[in-house]
Design a protein around this nucleic acid. Structure first.
Length: 577
RNA sequence: GCGCCCGUAGCUCAGUUGGAUAGAGCAACGGCCUUCUAAGCCGUGGGUCAGGGGUUCGAAUCCUCUCGGGCGUGCCA
C-alpha cells in the first residue's frame, strides 16, 4: 500500500465519521507550498457541493475526526481557505516508513501484450522508429517490475509489395557471386540499388512484381531468398536494440507474415457475419461508431478489389491471435498518433466480430513526431531520413568529447571512460525522448540534449554517482546499508516524502503509459537530493552519529530509487563519471 | 468538407480525477569550491496560460465559439 494511500484511507474514515457519502473521494495530494503542510485533503469542498452544505464547516468536522484517526502521526491539522485540510505529518512517523516498508498492494497481475518498435524490414531503422521503441520498452519494463506477465511483440513489416523488388535484387547479386551478408551490409544502399534497378529495367520490374505473387503464394525459391533477407535485416535491428539497451530480441519478432495464412479466414468470417460487405469490388467494414456528423460510417477496407489484403486485415488477425492464443488481458499498441483512426477502426471491428472479448483492454498509446530545430520533421541536412545507427554514433561521439573534457584530471582509465561515454550518450538520447509528454510532437535538439544540464539523463546519472561516491568514501556497502531515518531539516523532510511517493508514481505510469511522469519524478528526486546534500553534511566533522546514519539512509534510498527508476527507463547508471 | 491533436516565460518543456500566489531547465544577471564529484547549489528578473463567452466557492485544466498550427480521411503501411 502506498504511503499516500494510507493517508487517503484515514481521511476517508474521517469522512465516514462526518457522514459523507462513500462516493466522495478524499482527494489527498502533496501540498504545493510548505505553509500548507505535507499533504492536503481537498475532498471536503466537493463533498460540500454535493451535500449542499457549508464547505468550511464540513472540513472542520472531517478535520476533527481526522485528528483522531491520525493521532500522533500528525503534528498539525488545520482547515484553510474555502475548505482545504492541511496535514503536517510527524517527522518520526515519516522516518518510520523507511524502517518497515509497506506491504505490497494486492493486485491481480495481468498478461499484457506490448506491441512496439515495429520497423519495416525493407529498410534500415531510422529516427522515426525511436519513440515507439524506447517508450514501449520503458512501459514493458515498468509492467514487468510490477508483476505483470509481459509479452513483447515486434510487429515488423516483412510482407509488403517492396519485398518482390528486394528479393529479385538479392537474387541477381547472389547470382554474380556476392554473399548475402555483404550485399545486405547496408540495407539502405541495397534498397536504393533495388529501386534504381526497378525504375530503369522493365524486365527486372516485371520479375519483381511476379516475385511478390510467388512469394505470397509460397514459392520455395522466393521464400528462401526472402528468408535470407529477413534474417539479416532482423540481425541489424537486434544489434541496434542491444546498443540502445532495449529488451527486444529476435524471439520477440512477430512479423506481419506470421498472420498471412489467417487473413483469408478473417475476411471470410467478417463477410459471413455480415460485418464486411462488398463495395466497389473491395471488401469493406463500415463502422457506425465512427460515423461523421452527417451519419456516414467510417470505411475500412480489409480486402482490395484485386484480392490483396491490407494492414487492417493483419491487425485484425493479430488482435484475434492475442485474444485466442495469447489470452491477453491488455494489449498496448505503441504506434504513431497519425494512425489513431486506423486503430479505432481495428478495435471497433475486432470487438464487433468477437475477435476479442469485452474484458480485454485494447489501448492505442499514440506518440507525436520527432521534429528538427526548425519545427519540421527531423531530417539530415540534405533532407534525408536520419538513420538510427548514425544518431546513436553521433550521441556517443559527442558524449565521448564531453566525458573526456570533464575528466581531464581524473585517474579513470580509457576503457572506463569509453563505457561512461556510451552510457551518457545513449542515455541522453533516450531520456530526451522519454521525458517529453508522449502524445505531443517534440523538438530534437543536440545542443540542449547534450548540454547535459537540467532535466537530462546525465544529471540523474551524476546524482547517482555522487551518492555511490559517499558510500565509497565512507567504506560502506550501499547495497547492504541499513539505518534509521530521523527527519531534522526541511530538505530531509522533502526528500523523504518524495521517496515515499515512488510506488504510487509507478502505479500511475503503469496505468497511463506515460514515461515522462517517471522522468519528472526522478528529476525532482535528483534535485531534492542535491539540495539535501548541500544542506545536510554527511561525512563531515561535527555530524552526530544519529544524523549521519539517517542521512546515509536517505542517500541510500535515493540511490536505490534513482537506479531502479533509470533501469525502468532503460538507462544505465555507473559508479563514477 | 469531416475527424483527431496541439497553442503555457525569449527558447525547450512540466502542470495530477478542476484547488490556494501557474513551475522547471536553457539563455540573462548576481553569489557559492584549501572541506562528502561545480555535469552541482543558492538567489534575481522574466507570463493577457492564443482570444471571446460560459459552468462554480474556485478554470491552464470542463463546455462553447473564433483565430493560428499539425495530422488523418476507401484499395500503402
Amino acid at each position: 500500500m502506498s504511503f499516500k494511500h494510507q493517508l487517503e484511507l484515514a481521511v476517508r474514515r474521517a469522512m465516514d465519521s462526518a457522514e459523507i457519502p462513500a462516493d466522495c473521494a478524499p482527494m489527498v495530494v502533496r501540498s504545493n507550498r510548505p505553509e500548507f503542510g505535507d499533504f492536503q485533503a481537498n475532498g471536503a469542498m466537493a463533498a460540500a457541493k454535493q451535500l449542499k452544505t457549508n464547505p468550511r464547516q464540513l472540513a472542520e468536522r472531517i478535520c476533527q475526526a481526522l485528528a483522531e484517526q491520525l493521532g500522533e502521526r500528525a503534528d498539525k491539522l488545520e482547515v484553510a481557505g474555502p475548505g482545504f485540510i492541511n496535514i503536517t505529518l510527524n517527522g518520526a512517523y515519516i522516518g518510520a516508513q523507511f524502517a518497515a516498508p509497506a506491504a505490497a498492494t494486492q493486485r491481480n497481475a495481468q498478461t499484457v501484450v506490448v506491441d512496439y518498435s515495429a520497423p519495416n524490414l525493407a529498410k534500415q531503422m531510422h529516427v522515426g522508429h525511436l519513440r515507439s521503441t524506447i517508450i514501449g520498452d520503458a512501459i514493458a519494463r515498468v509492467l514487468m517490475h510490477r508483476g505483470d506477465t509481459v509479452i513483447r511483440q515486434n510487429h515488423v513489416g516483412d510482407w509488403g509489395t517492396q519485398f518482390g523488388m528486394l528479393i529479385a535484387e538479392l537474387e541477381e547479386q547472389l547470382g554474380s557471386g556476392e554473399r548475402a551478408e555483404l550485399a545486405l551490409a547496408d540495407l539502405e544502399q541495397f534498397y536504393q540499388a533495388a529501386k534504381l534497378h526497378f525504375d530503369a529495367d522493365p524486365a527486372f520490374a516485371d520479375k519483381a512484381r511476379a516475385y511478390v505473387v510467388k512469394l505470397q503464394g509460397g514459392d520455395s525459391h522466393c521464400r528462401q531468398l526472402w528468408q535470407q533477407f529477413i534474417d539479416i535485416s532482423i540481425a541489424h535491428n537486434v544489434a541496434l536494440y542491444r546498443q540502445l539497451g532495449v529488451l527486444l530480441t529476435a524471439a520477440d519478432t512477430m512479423p506481419e507474415s506470421a498472420y498471412n495464412d489467417q487473413l483469408g479466414d478473417v475476411v471470410a468470417t467478417l463477410v459471413n457475419d455480415g460485418i464486411a460487405v462488398e463495395d466497389a469490388g473491395a471488401k469493406v467494414v463500415f463502422i457506425d461508431e465512427l460515423a461523421d456528423k452527417n451519419g456516414n460510417p467510417s470505411p475500412m477496407i480489409i480486402e482490395k478489389s484485386g484480392g490483396g489484403y491490407l494492414y487492417a486485415t493483419t491487425d485484425l488477425a493479430a488482435a484475434r491471435y492475442r485474444q485466442q492464443t495469447l489470452r491477453a488481458d491488455r494489449v498496448l499498441y505503441f504506434i504513431d498518433a497519425r494512425q489513431s483512426l486506423h486503430m479505432k477502426q481495428v478495435f471497433a471491428t475486432a470487438r464487433r466480430a468477437g475477435f476479442v472479448e469485452p474484458s480485454m483492454q485494447l489501448e492505442h498509446l499514440p506518440f507525436g513526431t520527432m521534429m528538427g530545430a526548425d519545427g519540421k520533421p527531423f531530417k539530415t541536412r540534405s533532407g534525408g531520413t536520419v538513420k538510427l545507427a548514425d544518431l546513436l554514433s553521433e550521441a556517443i561521439e559527442r558524449a565521448t568529447a564531453l566525458v573526456a573534457e570533464k575528466n581531464r584530471d581524473s585517474d579513470i582509465g580509457a576503457d572506463e571512460l569509453a563505457e561512461i561515454a556510451r552510457k551518457v550518450g545513449i542515455g541522453a538520447v533516450k531520456y530526451a525522448d522519454l521525458s517529453k509528454t508522449r502524445t505531443n510532437d517534440y523538438i530534437f535538439d543536440w545542443d540542449s540534449m547534450l548540454s547535459f544540464e537540467g532535466n537530462t539523463a546525465p544529471y540523474l546519472q551524476y546524482a547517482y554517482t555522487r551518492i555511490v561516491s559517499i558510500f565509497r568514501r565512507a567504506g560502506l556497502a550501499i547495497d547492504s546499508f541499513a539505518g534509521a531515518v530521523a527527519i531534522e531539516l526541511p530538505q530531509e523532510r522533502a526528500l523523504a516524502l518524495h521517496l515515499l511517493g515512488f510506488e504510487e508514481l509507478l502505479e500511475q505510469v503503469a496505468r497511463d503509459c506515460y514515461p515522462h511522469l517517471l522522468c519528472n519524478y526522478l528529476y525532482e528526486l535528483a534535485s531534492l537530493f542535491m539540495s539535501f546534500y548541500e544542506a545536510a553534511p554527511i561525512l563531515k566533522e561535527g555530524v552526530t552519529a544519529i544524523s549521519k546514519e539517517s542521512r546515509l539512509a536517505l542517500a541510500m534510498q535515493s540511490a536505490k530509487t534513482l537506479a531502479l527508476g533509470l533501469e525502468l527507463l532503460g538507462i544505465d547508471t555507473m559508479d563514477r563519471m
